[in-house]
Write a protein that binds this DNA or RNA. Sequence first.
DNA 1: CGTTCTCTTGAAATCACTCAATTTATGTGG
DNA 2: CCACATAAATTGAGTGATTTCAAGAGAACG
Lengths: 248, 248
Amino acid sequence: MPAEDVHPVAPQCGDCPIRHRAVCARCEADELDLLEESKYYRSFEAGQTVIWSGDRMDFVASVVSGIATLTQTLEDGRTQMVGLLLPSDFVGRPGRETAAYNVTATTDIVMCCFRKKPFEEIMLRTPHIAQRLLEMTLDELDAAREWMLLLGRKTAREKIASLLAIVARRDAAIHLRYPEGTMTFDLPLTREAMADYLGLTLETVSRQISALKRDGVIELEGKRHVTVPDFDRLMSEAGDDSDGGFLP
Amino acid sequence: MPAEDVHPVAPQCGDCPIRHRAVCARCEADELDLLEESKYYRSFEAGQTVIWSGDRMDFVASVVSGIATLTQTLEDGRTQMVGLLLPSDFVGRPGRETAAYNVTATTDIVMCCFRKKPFEEIMLRTPHIAQRLLEMTLDELDAAREWMLLLGRKTAREKIASLLAIVARRDAAIHLRYPEGTMTFDLPLTREAMADYLGLTLETVSRQISALKRDGVIELEGKRHVTVPDFDRLMSEAGDDSDGGFLP
DNA sequence: CGTTCTCTTGAAATCACTCAATTTATGTGG
DNA sequence: CCACATAAATTGAGTGATTTCAAGAGAACG
């Protein structure tokens, strides 16, 4: 099997699983037809690099399924995750030639791509796309700023608790539940990826997860399957207000 | 003199100093006329809070002159700056009821405000505004992600050097110079504000500035006036590539 | 069954923080 | 103009959280 597959079957936009949340969410049928013409699917295997920072990038894309990360690095190799791409999230910037971040598939991933030029032209003619993209970008900016508070001011324990709370909430949202009481979910990230997300070393991540387990804040089954007996307790460990914002 | 003045003289948009960089940058004359109708100026004194996180916010605004900060805080008072508002920057989010951050004037500041409802309606009809706002938001997102790398992975010394480099570059851009060789500028922030920006304590900021001075990376005249004898040296202290991005 | 990758745990070192005292700059009222 | 108060910044000593370096356990895979 090839590591990167350029032409998996691309379904009709009408049948697309991310149709109602992606950059095309507000498009009318005729607007979808325009997009349909210049779209193509690409898939990547877990661990593969989708694009390197600085490389020429002549497409933009929506994540259809799977998870990818955006990371930045310093010369000496220190790396910081700066974004997490989930299904329906958008990659790339209209009007920019080169990629600003490394994009890496952490699971097998399928992306719905549009060549940049045609996409930019379509965007000029269909305000619905630009409107939705603005909305998504503003949401990302809010998320980035929440993350900055975490990186700059939270302790290692609070960082871990915050990440667990984010994943728990997102999982609840997917299953249309309200985040409270006992919650169970799988961590979609390795310890190393968690460390890159949180600005910690992987050893510290491991230690703090052990500590939260020892203190009864979480229970573990294997390395990845987490049970949170009391979501409010987790939230207070995260240092946030219990009324904290939602990331649906 | 009142601390907050609701009706200073608002000049015609055509004479506006931030006309070519603000959210209205791409507007045609007739589009400006629309904005002109619902705009009003407000000014705040240095140190004043413009708006509290969570408060109802029924306007959006552009900074005309002065500097303000966006900050987030944890319950116990730890605070992290998440944005720095300079002239032409935009505050507020169309389609949102309440403020997501504390906005504080760090110098005397003048803002060009629009009531939210009318602004949203104008935005629907004039794609030029939405286009420009998207562009500005994408720029802010890039800046936030650069900042995340700093917060998560840089040492205290690198953080200080990075901040000095940012201010130096911005100052150079204002004076239409290329950032290189010897540069001189004023710090627009107190040590405490720098600490909130960098995710450090003010004592650490003070110590690292002293260290950079001792090592000849910078020279100080008073507390705020900085000379950088060798910009490349400063850049390498910041841990970035010397080709680092611009924040004009 | 060995190899590899992920994760955990321990011990020592380091970086930044906390607490505390002092200096410098700025402003105010007598 | 001086004395005093206040705010901003510096510096020192000690502590503590996180990293670094190192070793080993557990799971996955050919």
